[in-house]
Amino acid sequence: MSDQMNDFLKDYQAFAQQSWDAWMRSMQQPGAMGSFGTPPMGGANDDLLSRSLASLKAYGSWLQQAAGAGQAATMWQQSMPMQPFLAAFNQPFAQTVAGIDSASAFGFDHQWQSWLQAMQRAGQMGLAGNMGSNLQGSWPTFGITREMQLDQQALTAAINDYLQVSARYQALLQQVNSKGIARLQEKLGQGAEPGKQPESMKALYDLWIDAMEDAYAEMALSDDYREVFGALANAQMRVRKLQQQQTEQMCRELGMPTRSEVDSLGQRVQQLRRDLQARKQRESQADASEVDALQAEIAELKRELAASKATAKVRPITRKTDADDGKASTRAKTAGSASGKRK
């Protein structure tokens, strides 16, 4: 029976590998397939595809590992033991979290390392091949490059700080892993009676997800996590900020526009947009007030005209008076004024 199992596993692994390869080939055809998953940032095309498929592959690997782990001959005579399944769950959580990092997110180690290398090549930093010793602490600075040395020390210290905080963050995630497994065991223990146990590998996997998410949520809402999460974000921002400052320095030397200059321009443009909108609004309100005034004036004139006509109908014909002349003159003037405003 054991030989049969080994043969099956070999065949299965070959089949699985062929399947992944086929997926990769298909997805490499531009626009050929619907896309899903985290849109990765940067990197080679194969890397992007691998990351999109990572979740599926992780599950496939787990199925393979979990089922293969208990291939002792005794398995075929009794129900499968639990331990091999739990062992197969050992790493996926940290892998999953690592898998959803992007260049914009906190897992940016590879990004700043690339940046460091680029800066070293450009001769902007004295850290080439010597990060280890530079991370040990500050050293006296002097001479014409004193300011640059200070900048480098600040960046080195910031990177060092980031690495330490990142290690604390990873340690917390590792705790989630072990707590999640404990919760899974607890859940399985609670459902030990017939009918309440997972009846398939997928059901066991779903139960594991529930257990891990419970453990993660508890951790994520803890004071420790809040403090480390904040520290991680802050440490990364300090590194990025110092990177930007050094990049700006290089840009200035090369005569290129810098981020600070673009920001300054953007800020002024935004203020101009506000001023423009405010002016439009004032003009619109002024126009509206003017239209209202004109409409009121026209209405008043119409009322006066109507009143005048009514008076004319009932009034006996008499000689024209000076007062009438004055009124007529005023009307003509007002109408002329309204007409003028309309123009």
Binding site: L63, S79, P81, L188
Partner: peptide, 21 residues
């Protein structure tokens, strides 16, 4: 943890193969 799972190995392998298929 010694709690055994109620499904047999053949079922597990079938499930694995079905997933890949």
């Amino acid at each position: 943890m010694s709690t055994p799972l109620p499904f047999d190995p053949q079922q597990a392998f079938n499930e694995m193969a079905t997933f890949q298929r």
